[in-house]
Design a protein around this nucleic acid. Structure first.
Length: 423
RNA sequence: GGAGAGGUGCCUGAGUGGCCGAAAGGGCCGGUUUGCUAAACCGUUAUACGAGCUUAAACUUGUAUCGAGGGUUCGAAUCCCUCCCUCUCCGCCA
């Protein structure tokens, strides 16, 4: 969430930036400032009254110790009247705080200065492309057909056991999953990321911390009995590891990686782009997360982009990196790069990674702070990125590397997969 | 799931109605001593939000915070209620 002080000091800038994100209720900004002023006034009133009350209570104690009961009773009357005058102030104060809090949670993160204006994915900017599109054999088919041909993935079985969007991986298909996960984790560890295996269900406070709650509960599976949410991404449990912690400056950067299945209800997205592995309710992903010094976060963002780019290059897939426009960015992000890989048989680009700098938007919710060189508290900046989401990578590996009668795997995978091809 | 115990500051741990933002020990940081290290001694050691002062910081000061939320009371870490969590034993179980 945004910082109220920052909003007050930069009212016009805030409105300008929110507009880039296509945020409509700009009057909320004025409302926040108004509510905060009110809050301060009320707190001053409440504090002074409370202070008087505290003093009087102490005096009562002293009087009673001296057995001056009559005087004590008099004081009690005084206290009673103070209390009744405090009550409306206190109620007003907490109502104001609640209102303020509720409104501020509705504001999305401000896009950074380099975010292009725009409303739809068409307005995203292609930063660069890499790899080259393959020459497919004449009998080339999309991955769902390849998955069947080589007995790698059983979608129908998934339907039977759970429902659509929950495929079974079988034989070499299952092994390929395992190989990819292992490869991605090793690659991240080698770059200094600490590996975690987090819980796959989280409580409400955790879901709140990274910005899934409030408002996005409809996108998550929920276990009513225990009030747990199934994680939509490892970002949620991993970033929350340091929730409510005060770090030392030289603890930073904190680099973490985790493999988890991800669960997404994808409500409202039926019908389009859901064929095969393109969009699932459960999928595997390896994630990287960093907590960094605020001055370093944009530098780190580029570093993460490069890190993921190299990984993609090693898979020998044609890719492009997009800088998302204001309208296509997520609620919590200040700057996002998407990685898309070209799915040769489907002839379309599939998003396989999204790398974002959240600046202090998440850390302010989670209160992840550090003491700087001057011993001042500062919020860390949080970043994360997928490295990578498996299903679409698998789809592209199958489609792009298919030959007449087998699938040639990129060299990086050979030792993990135990073979250089799927036949 | 059943029975019991418990949740206090960075850690251990005392505290059963006012003298408690909280003893003591440890740790950390700063200082003295020291050829260096160790030891010893002294001191400091929370966060949030207000107010004052200030260019700002520092500082002074108020309020709140002893798992969370309510309640009793002039006054709550301390009493009561609800919830959450941890531990032990039993049961069940990978």
């Amino acid at each position: 969430m945004l910082d109220v002080k920052f909003i007050k000091d930069n009212k016009d800038l805030v409105k300008e930036r929110l507009a880039i994100k296509n945020f409509k209720d700009l009057n909320l900004v004025d409302e926040i400032i108004e509510l905060d002023n009110q809050r301060k006034k009320l707190q001053t009133e409440s504090d002074t009254t409370q202070s008087k009350l505290n003093i009087a209570s102490k005096e009562i104690g002293q009087l009673m110790a001296k057995k001056e009961n009559e005087k004590a009773e008099e004081k009690k009357l005084e206290v009673a009247s103070l209390k009744s005058s405090l009550q409306p102030i206190a109620e007003n104060l907490s109502a104001t705080e609640n209102k303020l809090n509720e409104i501020i949670l509705r504001l999305p993160n401000l896009p950074s200065a380099q975010v292009p204006a725009g409303k739809t994915p068409d307005d995203n900017i292609t930063v660069r492309e890499g790899g080259s599109k393959p020459q497919l054999p004449a009998n080339a088919v999309p991955h769902w057909d390849l998955a069947k041909k080589y007995n790698l993935i059983d979608f129908e079985l998934g339907n039977k056991i759970t429902g659509s969007g929950f495929p079974f991986y079988v034989n070499k298909g299952a092994k390929l999953q395992r190989a990819l996960i292992q490869y991605f984790l090793d690659y991240n560890s080698a770059a200094g990321y600490t590996e975690y295996q987090p819980p796959l269900m989280v409580n409400e406070a955790t879901a709140f911390g990274t910005g899934q709650l409030p408002d996005k509960e409809g996108q998550m599976y929920y276990v009513n009995e225990d009030k747990f949410y199934l994680i939509p991404t490892a970002e949620v449990p991993v970033t929350n590891i340091y929730r409510d912690e005060i770090l030392k400056e030289n603890d930073l950067p904190i680099k973490m990686t985790a493999y988890t299945p991800c669960f997404r209800r994808e409500a409202g997205s039926y019908g389009k782009d859901v064929r095969g592995l393109n969009r699932l309710h459960q999928f595997d992903k390896v994630e990287i997360v960093q907590l960094v010094h605020p001055e370093k976060s944009y530098e780190v963002l580029e570093e993460m982009v490069n890190h993921i780019e190299k990984l993609l290059q090693s898979l020998q897939l044609p890719y492009r990196i997009l800088k998302l426009c204001g309208g296509d960015m997520g609620f919590t992000s200040a700057l996002t790069y998407d990685f898309e890989v070209y799915s040769a048989a489907q002839q379309k680009w599939l998003e396989v990674s999204s790398v974002s700098n959240f600046e202090s938007f998440q850390s302010n919710r989670m209160k992840i702070r550090f003491k700087d060189a001057n011993n001042k508290m500062q919020l860390v900046h949080t970043l994360n990125g997928s490295s990578l989401a498996l299903p679409r990578i698998v789809a592209c590996l199958l489609e792009n590397h298919q030959t007449e009668n087998n699938i040639q795997l990129p060299e990086a995978l050979h030792k993990y997969f135990g073979n250089d091809r799927i036949a």
